[in-house]
């Protein structure tokens, strides 16, 4: 493979990873924006999405549905994974966050962490500790640019993540509920005084964020061909790094941060020993927090404590 095709290949990888991190980071950033807490269970929701994807896909494949209704299959897989995880997100909000909205920060963080431990172990029990293969539905069909092979599946995933991000942007900026969400994030008391039911907006946030994460989970499964109960952990830290890098609370920031983190990771694995790539992300995260805690596009973040 010559240099140009190598670069194209890596570019596709970077865009893919970047959009995955962006989708997950959006969930963090939205939840953080509205309740100023990090949803520790977000990584597990992402994994749950991937598993629901497997289940639906496997079921449809058994029925022979995939060959006949390919597009519908995709819609069903993504739709069900996202819908289910959205419900899960609301459940987590209700069980772990809502009762603690006025409690100390530490209590809320710990309860969210408890949820994360609970879900991750639940998935371990139900799905086992080994990798589970994702049914390959795209096959290997694709096209070549120079010598670089690009599968249709990759293109589809990248386009879908773009669509989701654009849809989110439209929702947040153009709809009444989306605007109410932004208002709640900016000034909760004032939002309530204008008649906005913040319980509802928070609930919606806890549906959309996890749903995006679930979509990312299915995409990761389809792209790499396998999922594992604990894969959420590493994605969670990277997406968090992306959210912080872009400026937590900022939606465009999350996308930008995701793409940067994805790019750095791909660059690193292309030229340097890839077993150290995760360490790089952590180092980036820590450097950003240390040098510019408000991130690239972030508003000023108050440096208050727990």
């Amino acid at each position: 493979m010559d240099n140009a095709s190598f670069i194209i290949q890596q570019l596709i990888n970077a865009i893919f990873l970047g959009s995955i991190y962006s989708l997950i980071a959006l969930g963090y950033t939205m939840v953080y924006g509205i309740i100023e807490l990090i949803n520790f269970a977000h990584g597990e929701l992402f994994t749950a999405g991937a598993f629901i994807g497997i289940i639906v896909l496997a079921a449809l494949q058994n029925m022979g549905f995939v060959e006949t209704h390919f597009v519908l299959t995709l819609i069903l897989v993504f739709g069900m994974a996202m819908a289910y995880v959205a419900v899960l997100g609301v459940a987590i909000e209700h069980v772990a966050y809502k009762p603690l909205r006025k409690a100390s920060r530490l209590a809320a963080i710990l309860s969210a962490l408890g949820m994360s431990i609970f879900l991750s172990n639940g998935m371990m029990l139900s799905q086992g500790v080994s990798d589970r293969a994702y049914p390959a539905i795209f096959g290997l069909k694709g096209f070549s640019i120079l010598d670089a092979r690009i599968a249709y599946g990759q293109i589809f995933i990248i386009i879908l993540s773009l669509v989701l991000m654009v849809a989110l942007n439209m929702f947040v900026n153009w709809t009444k509920l989306g605007k109410a969400m932004r208002a709640t994030a900016q000034n909760q008391t004032m939002a309530r005084m204008l008649g906005i039911d913040i319980d509802r907006t928070i609930r919606v946030t806890f549906m959309i964020g996890p749903a995006l994460g679930a979509a990312a989970g299915v995409m990761v499964g389809m792209y790499y061909g396998s999922v594992r109960f604990d894969m959420g952990f590493i994605y969670m830290i990277k997406a968090f790094a992306a959210a912080i890098l872009g400026g937590i609370g900022s939606i465009p920031g999350a996308v930008l941060g995701g793409i940067i983190i994805g790019g750095v990771e791909v660059l690193w694995s292309a030229f340097l020993p890839s077993e150290w790539k995760d360490v790089t992300t952590f180092v980036v995260l820590i450097l950003v927090l240390y040098l510019r805690p408000s991130g690239i596009l972030g508003e000023h973040v108050s440096e208050s404590r727990v």
Binding site: I38, R105, L106, F282, I286, L289, V301, V306
Partner: peptide, 14 residues
């Protein structure tokens, strides 16, 4: 100088 939840994730990363 980090707030609680940042601290949690960063220590997790460390």
């Amino acid at each position: 100088r980090m707030r609680g939840d940042y601290l949690a994730i960063v220590t997790m990363g460390f």
